[in-house]
Design a protein around this nucleic acid. Structure first.
Lengths: 335, 335
DNA sequence: CTGAAAGCGCTTACAG
DNA sequence: CTGAAAGCGCTTACAG
């Protein structure tokens, strides 16, 4: 079933003109093609009357452009990524594009599958928070002429546009502040994924320790899975506090900080100790914990906005140099 | 630029057979069309060798099917919706479909625009959390043969498949429990949007009051915007507590409850009062508040799973009756 | 200024 | 079992 679809031909037939003419007018090329104003108006009117809408599949087949942008993230249900998705959606729809999305769960296999799938779907551009395994696929995509923008993490040895936060600097300032506040032994709970984001947060941590002559101690660094990590996080926090006797803990991100923070809150409440928290990224929920913390807030919306802006520039071939946009983070100090 | 695209013709040419034959084999119709096994194998092998991928635009143009599902929600960056999006994505991708999404911000204008846009994009089906203004557009979509599944709210006077939570019952049990716990005056902070979700939560609230002979008092009902409602929520909570002297407050959802909950926590902390919280929907953050609460948790993932299941059934014309799936909510009692 | 025609890459009746 | 051909609905060089 379904109502009759109307095409260019219907308008052309009703008006007794050629499809070409109608196509030109509908695509705003009336002036360029020197179609008479009267004719153009007649066509536009008729199109509106019978409710003509160009078939995007036919256009895509003909032009090779699908007006579709792909977005691949670790998990669309994670608020960091869903906020980015939202800001990308806003810009995209303003420009007549729509967004298809996929979640990789930080799995290289899934991520590469998604890239292949989106490539097969003929996306016009891709914004991706890649896993370490995606490099070759991304290079290939670019070789096929498909613009790519990386977000959150990147590859040092391939040329791609990217938008990231200043991980090293943000972490450095958090840990520095923790040290200045009197903490000598600062634990670190990080993800087990291998990305530049994890790498540079570790570097920022090390840099701060070094500045104050505090030795880097692998015994107080813990890695937890990027998902379903509640148990590991809780255990790690307990170990760091009870066995390693840390004064403070720096968390890789707010999800982990919240899990671990509950343990810390309970410890602090019992007046056993007063553990302080450092956290990359923040959320309004962190303050609910009622634990002294310092956090570096990412400009999440801006990551999405900048990424799509860079993507559009590439798509219009107006971006001639590789752009690496490093966004500042904002410190929230509740120590 | 871009590498050479390979088409059916390339395989046909290389193998000296017709495109039809290749098409049949690639679509798994070899047996049906009685293509010889040897030929089928040869074609499949060659396709793999030269990396053939059917052009979905051409397929879509020819078949009228785009393998695309539309998802329209109030806000993809809201975790309720992004979790639903994730479960829809999972099922869709397993079945070779991809998902395009749009956020309406509860605006009828935006929502209708999105429906039109997605219709023009020739989606094969739509899952939507509609605004009250979307009714006619949804009916029209269905008349065009496009399957639709509503989530979270619905229209009583049109026939559509839907997945919702048991709003009335969930609310009833929350408020009932609050009353049984000794609260006599229970405020209600709800959204200003007009949906069946808001309607039935109000009805559940009223039903519970009635059961215990407590009069329904409009002075302790407050409406706040669905978004950016921090100030309104805080003010409403303060008014209800200070002026109206309520014993407890029932919140429409967890976003509002968290904003309002901070105020309540402070009040309780100062030992001024001991206000209890009721909340439709919950989150792990609610417990951080350290305020006595009772919440009804929605089966968020199941909403997405059921919606996409119903959509696929419709798309396969295997759903002959309108299905209204009402999911139970789970009570979390921390009073 | 305008029309006829080719072609994007498929699928699928139709004919052998 | 297999091939030639039409057609989905566009855009765009080409010819007048």
């Amino acid at each position: 079933m379904g109502l009759k679809k109307i095409s260019l031909k219907d308008i052309a037939l009703e008006l007794g003109v050629s499809k070409s003419l109608v196509s030109f007018v509908m695509n705003g090329k009336a002036k360029e093609m020197r179609v008479s104003d009267a004719m153009a108006e007649k066509i536009i009117l008729k199109a509106k009357q019978i409710g003509y809408k160009a078939n995007p599949m036919a256009q895509a087949l003909r032009t090779g452009k699908t007006q579709t942008i792909g977005l691949i993230v670790a998990d669309i249900s994670n608020s960091f990524y869903s906020k980015i998705a939202r800001s990308i959606e806003n810009s995209a729809s303003k420009n007549g594009y729509h967004v298809i999305f996929g979640s990789s769960d930080e799995s290289g296999i899934k991520s590469k599958e998604l890239i292949n799938l989106f490539f097969a779907k003929r996306i016009d551009g891709l914004i991706i928070s890649p896993t370490i395994e995606d490099k070759d696929h991304i290079v290939k995509l670019q070789e096929h002429g498909i613009p790519v923008v990386l977000i959150d993490r990147y590859f040092k040895d391939i040329k791609t546009n990217m938008v990231i936060s200043n991980n090293l600097n943000g972490t450095f300032h958090i840990v520095k502040r923790l040290i200045e506040n009197g903490n000598k032994k600062i634990g670190f709970i990080t993800h087990n994924t291998i990305t530049t984001a994890t790498e540079y947060r570790v570097k920022g941590y090390q840099k701060a320790l070094k500045k104050f002559g505090i030795p880097y101690d692998v015994d107080i660094i813990r890695e937890v899975p990027h998902i379903n990590n509640r148990i590991e996080t809780e255990n790690s926090v307990r170990e760091l506090i009870e066995l390693q006797k840390v004064d403070a803990i720096f968390f890789f991100n707010n999800t982990i900080a919240l899990e671990g923070g509950k343990i810390i809150r309970d410890v602090n409440k019992k007046k056993l100790r007063n553990i302080e928290i450092g956290c990359f990224d923040s959320s309004s929920y962190l303050e609910l914990l009622d634990v002294p913390y310092i956090a570096a807030v990412q400009q999440v919306e801006e990551i999405g906005n900048t990424a799509i802006k860079l993507l559009f520039l590439q798509m219009e071939s107006k971006l001639n140099i590789i752009t690496k946009k490093v966004l500042k983070v904002k410190l929230i100090d509740k120590l």
